[in-house]
C-alpha cells in the first residue's frame, strides 16, 4: 500500500483545496450564485474500499465524468455523483427545470453535467500542474452512467491501481449534493506525484 507522510498529505490536501476553490469560483460564475464546497478529505483506498464507500447506503446508479490525463505522471480522474445528486445538480444549474418531470438526464443535461465535471476535474489537475510544476495533457472527458463497479472499473487499468479518493459536498443555493473525486493511478505515477510535491514544497528553501 502506498503511504505518505503527514507533511506530504498536508501538501497534497492544500493542492486540492486550492483546486477545489478554483472549481467553486468557476461554478459560481456558471450558476450565478454562491457555490459552497466542503474541505475535501483525502484517502488512499483500494478499489473494494472505494466501492464500499460509494455503495454506502444505496445500490443506486451513479453518474460520472471520466477524464484521462498524461504527462509528468498519468492516470484517470473521476468525478462520481449518485444519480440523485446529479439530478439535484442539474436542477441547481437550470432553475427552470420542472421539478416533477425529471427522473433521468436528457442528452443535453448529460452534456451540462459533463461540463461541470470537466471544470472540477480540470481545476484539480490544473492546480497540481500549477503548484508542482508538473506538465499534463488531459483528454476530452466522457460521461458514464451505471453501477459503481461499472464506472470504477472503466477507469481502472491495472489491478494494482490505487485510488486517491476525495469526498466533497457541494451546496448551490438551497440544494446540497455530494460528489466524489477519485484519481486512479498506478504506483509509479503515485511516486512521481509524491516526488513533485516534495520538490515543490518540502525541500528546504534555505
Amino acid at each position: 500500500m502506498f503511504e505518505l507522510t503527514a507533511e506530504e498529505t498536508d501538501a497534497i490536501n492544500e493542492v486540492f483545496n486550492i483546486g477545489m476553490g478554483r472549481a467553486a469560483s468557476s461554478l459560481s460564475r456558471l450558476v450565478r450564485s454562491e457555490v459552497g464546497l466542503s474541505i475535501p478529505d483525502l484517502d488512499f483506498l483500494s478499489l473494494s474500499e472505494v466501492q464500499e464507500i460509494l455503495a454506502e447506503g444505496s445500490d443506486l446508479s451513479m453518474c460520472a465524468v471520466h477524464e484521462r490525463f498524461s504527462g509528468t505522471f498519468g492516470g484517470n480522474a473521476l468525478l462520481v455523483f449518485p444519480s440523485v445528486d446529479s439530478l439535484e445538480l442539474v436542477k441547481a444549474i437550470f432553475p427552470d427545470t420542472d421539478e416533477n418531470q425529471l427522473d433521468s438526464l436528457s442528452e443535453l443535461e448529460q452534456e451540462a453535467l459533463l461540463e461541470v465535471g470537466n471544470i472540477i476535474l480540470n481545476a484539480c489537475v490544473g492546480s497540481i500542474a500549477n503548484l508542482t510544476g508538473a506538465t499534463f495533457s488531459t483528454e476530452i472527458p466522457i460521461f458514464l452512467q451505471g453501477s459503481v463497479e461499472h464506472i470504477l472499473t472503466r477507469a481502472q487499468q491495472a489491478k494494482t491501481d490505487e485510488y486517491l479518493f476525495m469526498r466533497m459536498r457541494f451546496r448551490i443555493q438551497v440544494r446540497s449534493m455530494i460528489g466524489y473525486v477519485a484519481f486512479v493511478m498506478d504506483i509509479p505515477s503515485l511516486e512521481a506525484f509524491r516526488d513533485c510535491v516534495r520538490k515543490a514544497f518540502l525541500t528546504d528553501p534555505a
Binding site: I18, M20, S127
Partner: peptide
Amino acid sequence: ANIQDAVAQRAANLGLEFICK
C-alpha cells in the same frame, strides 16, 4: 482560491483584502 462575488462582498464589508492562493 475561491473568489466568488458573494464571498467578495462579505469580505469587503469587513474591510478585508484578498490574497489569491
